[in-house]
Design a protein around this nucleic acid. Structure first.
Length: 142
DNA sequence: GCCAACGTTGGC
DNA sequence: GCCAACGTTGGC
């Protein structure tokens, strides 16, 4: 299983809104960046991701799961743009802030730190485990 | 609100 | 194929 990070401005699409969608999940639409799209194309059902609030909050607040493979983005007429669907899995008990991540040497290579503008990014196994630990989730819990 | 970083576009 | 101009993102 691969791990990812999904970034969203809470004023546009917040973790609360994501959770309200429940098991049905929601299309991760609106991505207009090739790298981010390619990451979504690489996702498999059951892959896990962090839900990160950008602009406001600047923290990892939740865990999501990919529940539908990449398909055309319903908000675009351009067939180049595709997206997956994700559903909320659980809250991160102690949200992990960008400052926390930057302050942790183990996370110095995270794309979130290295390329802050990429909205859908890969997360390594080690980074996944570390951020989960910082967020108060036990190994294997997420 | 500012600005740095980055991606995209389009003329040549 | 290069690169200047422009637009967008996101942290501060």
């Amino acid at each position: 299983m691969a791990y990812w990070l999904f970034k969203s401005e809470p004023s546009t699409w917040s973790w609360e809104m994501q959770k309200a969608k429940g098991e049905a999940g929601q299309e991760w639409d609106g991505v207009r960046n090739y790298q981010a799209r390619n990451n979504m194309r690489a996702m498999k059902i059951g892959d896990r991701g962090f839900f990160y609030h950008s602009q406001e909050g600047l923290e990892v607040v939740g865990i999501v799961e990919v529940c539908k493979l990449a398909h055309p983005d319903s908000t675009s007429d351009d067939p180049r743009w595709e997206c997956v669907d994700v559903r909320a899995v659980r809250d991160v008990p102690q949200p992990v802030t960008l400052n926390d991540i930057k302050a942790n040497p183990k996370l110095s290579e995270m794309v979130l730190v290295r390329n802050s503008r990429l909205s859908v990014q890969p997360v390594s196994d080690d980074e996944w485990a570390e951020v989960n630990r910082m967020g108060g989730l036990k190994p294997g819990e997420a």
